[in-house]
Design a protein around this nucleic acid. Structure first.
Lengths: 344, 344
DNA sequence: CTGAAAGCGCTTACAG
DNA sequence: CTGAAAGCGCTTACAG
């Protein structure tokens, strides 16, 4: 049986089959397949042709075993009900991995979690995960940081509170966007603007809040702590926080929620008090989740390029793993305000 | 250097280290680790103890290469904006894989897709995916079916139109649930009940529609085709279909949408015509997505145990791959009606 | 109930 | 620019 027949029958040719077809050694095939230098052009062509003909795909297990590296990235995340943020992270990370022939393995976690370290260690060790992508707030958990350092596993943190030296950090201009959003409301005449903060564990929380204060200061509006409430990036916390703001003797005329899910909660709280949106109250969110355009009225919000951020995070992480990058520059991504009907 | 020191330093002991510690051969260690029979109890204990002490975790690459099987399952899915259904599928599949030490690899696809076969073939071949989980409508694509048959890759289809002999099929009682939901409206006095169908490629579509008709028939209400519109399981299609229904000379007093995202579109269309929900129009959906409880008014809908269905799908698939199951029984999962404020 | 040998399909380290 | 040899860490197939 020829190698071609064998390949056709089994559905997978090996490096030996390709080498035989091309009349070279397996080492040369390996060089070509891995884009290594020092192969004569004509040799490369012969190999490529054989690869094509036999529909050769390197066996990832063999590669992983012999190369002592898995070409596997991990994505460690909390798993919120409103999953749209994570969906974008997932899409972006997957897309980057596909481009570089890496696999992406997922490790959802419930937080807080006493067994976090144990679970992640098992995850990383068993699959020989080379590096992990950490969407917020994973990039800021001290236990996790310590574990990754111990396992010598590089990571890419998406919008962490603080950048870790030597690790990939992806940021976006959240403070500027939050400032612009608040200013947008100020320019429309709002003076009493409520603000619902996000989960204190997330890096975004402080930045979005800082943008709010910055806008107030810029326009000479006195900051009032009672217009600010703590939320946790989920619907119920937004609803509860909004209810408090709407019970204030001097109700705000606008509320900025630190994400869309909390803005949805704000809409519901307003509704339960019989308020018309935006006539009685303007509401704005953050994220531009699908939810934002499905609510009534559709939400004014801030669009972050989450998918691109995640793709870049995973891409830079793989670059680093392959020695193609030193300390990568931390270029913050730009955000964009999306004006819809929930504000006036 | 002892094996223990080596393991401590590298962070991964091998089967040789465990064998040495336990004073047995690597084959015996392999037997214990894989829960194979024919190991003396005392021997098993010795091995287990060594495994524990060295924190031994089998190298998945070596296992995969030598065993000619990857312990990898694939999840092939379309990637809708409103991702909550897929989130539950993902959670369920991941959970099943974790229990059995399988990895789950994702392959999102945009549909329709001319390169579908090529992309999935590459996906399956390269990672040596043993079996794939196919959420609707993936289980019904003829090209995909043919490919999987050619690659001899078993699959588990979640709510396909038709069950494929020899493959895992997971169903839920959609027709019954749709019938109950429609009856619920009829019992409240509704007679002109609109219906928005889902994507014709999904198995759920015909069943949910059949349940609607069944309820009408049961209560002696004449079926009127003009009260039925085609949708595609997304917001915009639901909005457009609802707008048509609301433009009818004889507007329906209730609309059942075949999923929550289309019900959200229905709410928006109603709003744009100044209709009060549920006073002027009752609206119901399907899925009980997070969206359903974030809308105003919160949606009456049908909850499917999607996570459990996906977990069962992946579990039965792995059983089959490991020869632990012949033709598994097709037990349809039960659905549950969730009554909220969008209906009266 | 247990083990010695071969081999899975690659990459690494080395030689020329 | 190219290749022969060894080895990654397991499982398979076989023997006892």
């Amino acid at each position: 049986m020829t190698s071609k027949q064998r390949a056709a029958r089994q559905g997978n040719a090996t490096i030996f089959d390709v080498a035989e077809q091309a009349g070279v050694s397996i080492k040369t095939v390996s060089r070509v397949v891995n884009n290594e230098p020092n192969v004569r052009e004509s040799t490369r062509d012969k190999v490529l042709e054989a690869v094509e003909r036999l529909r050769y795909l390197p066996n990832v297990a063999a590669r992983s075993l012999s190369g002592r590296r898995s070409r596997v990235l991990g994505l460690v995340y909390g798993s919120p009900d409103e999953f749209s943020y994570m969906k974008d992270v997932l899409d972006g990370a997957l897309s980057a991995c596909e481009e570089r022939d890496y696999s992406l393995l997922l490790r959802p976690l419930t937080l807080p979690n006493a067994e976090l370290v144990e679970q992640v260690e098992r995850f990383i060790t068993q699959a020989r995960v080379e590096g992990v992508v950490l969407p917020a707030p994973m990039g800021d958990l001290p236990d996790l940081q310590r574990l990754l350092r111990r396992l010598e596993t590089p990571f890419a943190a998406i919008t962490p509170k603080v950048a870790t030296a030597g690790q990939v950090t992806i940021l976006c201009e959240e403070q500027a966007a939050s400032c612009s959003l608040t200013e947008f409301l100020i320019e429309r005449g709002h003076r009493a603007i409520g603000f619902i903060k996000g989960d204190p564990d997330h890096g975004a929380t402080a930045k979005r809040f800082a943008g709010y204060r910055q806008a107030l200061a810029k326009h000479g509006i006195r900051y009032r702590g009672r217009l600010v409430r703590q939320g946790y990036f989920n619907f119920d916390s937004g609803k509860a926080a909004a209810a408090e703001l709407l019970n204030l003797p001097q109700m705000p005329t606008a509320i900025v929620a630190s994400n869309d899910d909390m803005a949805a909660g704000t809409l519901l709280a307003a509704r339960q008090r019989g308020l018309a949106i935006p006539e009685d109250l303007s509401v704005a969110g953050f994220d531009d989740a699908p939810l934002a355009s499905r609510l009534w009225p559709p939400l004014t919000t801030v669009r972050q390029p989450i998918r691109e951020m995640a793709k870049t995070a995973a891409g830079l992480l793989m670059d680093r793993l392959n020695g193609n990058a030193t300390e990568p520059p931390v270029v913050p991504f730009a955000c964009e305000i999306v004006v819809r009907e929930s504000t006036t």
